[in-house]
Simulated assay, not measured.
Amino acid sequence: MRRYLFPLVIGICGAAVLISLGLWQLRRLEWKEAYLAEIEARIGGTPAALATTFDPETDRFQPVAVAGRFTGDQLRVLSGVKGIGPGHRMIAGFETDTGRRILIDRGFLPQQAPGGTPPEGAVQVTGNLHWPREADEFTPDPDLKADLWFARDVPAMAAHLGTEPVLIVARQVSGDNGDVLPQPVDTSGIPNDHLEYALTWFGLTIVWLGMTALLMWRIRRKTV
């Protein structure tokens, strides 16, 4: 019996740890689903007027509506859309009726599509506030001469176009938006892999118990 004791204890303890990790991922899954439901409800809420101050964490995805004019300043962010192909997100400067200058993500312009010039005259934009976290240490520096960027970096883009560090991702733009296709914010970019992680831990538990049983069987063979 002493020969069985150590591998049995290791097998039970290891399985207990793996099961606890799987259960923790299930709790995380429950929390993430509630979090995503809250975000979806916020995204689809009634648009409000643009506030004077913002918190990139608490105000993220807040629906807003603004009226004003595009300034004519615009930059392109290298992007792509499944089923369409490569292209650019068009980020334009916008001056509201109250004189504030902000950024508008007008949407996606396919690479071969002509134009992309912002609408002229008075327009209304409905969308959601967003501060994307796309840039990291591996992101190339923008080509400022060509106004070509490789990630939506709101503070840097705002400094370049002389606006507040506020970005509205357009859901709807009145007037002629050309071939630019609005790309409203949604929760598709927020990872939710907790179920896969839980299944992985539970699968490892089965493997661990199987290896423990195999070891016990080999010990028994040696003692027979």
Rank of each mutant, 00 (worst) to 15 (best):
L215D: 05
N128P: 05
F138L: 14
P110D: 09
G121L: 09
P155C: 10
P182T: 05
I39E: 03
T126Q: 14
F138A: 13
L21P: 00
K32G: 00
R76W: 09
H160Q: 15
L129T: 11
L23T: 12
G87M: 06
Q111K: 10
E134R: 05
W24T: 07
T139N: 08
A92L: 08
Q112W: 08
P63K: 06
R27K: 13
Q62C: 08
K145G: 15
Q112N: 15
D179F: 10
I190S: 07
R60I: 00
G45W: 01
L29P: 03
L167N: 03
L204N: 05
T163L: 09
V224L: 13
G72P: 07
A49G: 15
T223H: 07
R76T: 00
V64L: 12
Q183R: 15
F70H: 11
P56G: 07
L21F: 12
D73F: 08
A135Y: 04
L26Y: 02
V64M: 11
A51R: 14
P119W: 00
P7S: 02
A159Y: 12
W149Y: 12
M1P: 01
M216K: 00
C13L: 15
Q25F: 04
L29G: 01
F202A: 04
Q62I: 06
G127Q: 10
W149H: 10
A34P: 02
L8K: 01
Q172H: 14
W217H: 13
W208L: 05
E57W: 04
P86N: 14
G189M: 04
E33Q: 15
G178Y: 04
A158P: 10
R171S: 09
C13I: 15
